[in-house]
Design a protein around this nucleic acid. Structure first.
Length: 311
DNA sequence: TATTGACGCTTTGTCACACC
DNA sequence: GGTGTGACAAAGCGTCAATA
């Protein structure tokens, strides 16, 4: 392995870009270098670390086991270096250049990303933001493994090393396709009669692929049950299914309202009270005082603030 | 003793091209 | 379509002497 005295630390940025892109062409684009420059840097990395690091496979580069093993620590070191070089309190969004990964459902793809991207373009053009799918039951671990910088999930208990802040409280409504034959006598926005609600089939959004959710718990508390016949991992899919079938769905108020003007479905109140969900952002405490991270948390909170308590 | 400028070597970049 | 390599150019860096 290399020693620090003779090692060019810029090579770590190249290794990071190669691990992210798995291609010398795309790594070059990410770094602002030509493909041959990345190839040469990879050659120097191979020599310094005594490992091939990447082997060519088809039209891309596959990392070696050593490259994969280095990845988490490499990200941490680069993050620390950025923080160090930025200096205390010296964060300037207009000059900042970093990537920020957020994990969340497609709720945030609709309710957060458009406004957030617009903000970044105006205030921090060098910052790139990525919304990545929630990996079921691994939200917290992804923070620890440097796979995401921020998680957007329903509030619950978190480990001590996870910091969190509540963003909004979100109620739920029932949606059904416009012209649903069984709901003709139910006025829009009125509660769906409980017997009818339980008699109809349902679709729900579950990134984990579950066939039960909040609605089932609320019904069970009232001594009733419904039949969920489908689940999809995104709300967009739920709304499309609702619009094209006789299924009902329970969806967050902001999502329902956002698409209501399209006229493909109507909105009703749930037949039983559904406890609102507190959505929060979570991050690793090692980023508590990171100026860039703190600034991004502020932007996310500000974008979602107008939704406030909905429903 | 610290700073500055000249000089030369080394490193790293791009371009063009061969190869897989 | 993508990677690796040779030729060449530019920039960076260390050394050394001159100077304040």
């Amino acid at each position: 392995m290399a020693n620090l005295a003779g090692f060019d630390l810029n090579l770590l940025r190249v290794l990071d870009a190669l691990l992210r892109e798995r291609s010398t062409v795309r790594a070059g684009e990410r770094l602002g270098l030509s493909q041959p420059a990345v190839s040469a840097a990879l050659g120097r990395l191979r020599h310094a670390l005594g490992d091939p690091l990447f082997v060519r496979q088809g039209q891309g580069m596959t990392p070696s086991s050593l490259a994969l093993a280095l990845e988490p620590e490499l990200r941490r070191v680069l993050q620390d270096l950025e923080t160090l070089l930025r200096g205390p309190g010296g964060f300037d969004p207009a000059q900042a250049t970093f990537d920020f990964r957020i994990s969340g459902t497609d709720f945030f793809s609709s309710m957060l990303m458009p406004a957030l991207v617009q903000r970044l373009a105006a205030r921090a053009p060098g910052v790139r933001v990525q919304l990545v799918d929630l990996v079921p039951d691994a939200y917290v671990e992804m923070l620890d493994r440097y796979e995401v910088d921020l998680g957007l999930i329903p509030e619950r208990d978190f480990p001590a090393w996870v910091a969190h802040a509540r963003l909004l409280t979100c109620g739920f409504v029932v949606v059904a396709r416009r012209g649903h034959p069984r709901l003709a006598s139910v006025p829009a926005a009125a509660p769906v009669p409980l017997p009818l609600y339980c008699a109809l089939d349902h679709v729900l959004c579950s990134p984990e692929g579950r066939l039960h959710g909040l609605g089932d718990a609320a019904l069970a508390a009232a001594g009733h049950r419904r039949r969920v016949v489908a689940s999809v991992p995104v709300f967009e899919g739920v709304l499309r299914i609702v619009a094209q079938t006789d299924l009902l769905a329970l969806v967050p108020v902001p999502i329902a309202r956002m698409r209501a003007t399209e006229g493909t479905y109507d909105i009703y109140a749930p037949p039983v009270p559904i406890s609102p969900v507190h959505l929060c952002m979570i991050w690793h405490r090692r980023f508590d005082d990171d100026p860039g991270h703190r600034w991004m948390r502020g932007q996310v909170a500000e974008v979602l603030a107008p939704l406030g308590r909905v429903g």
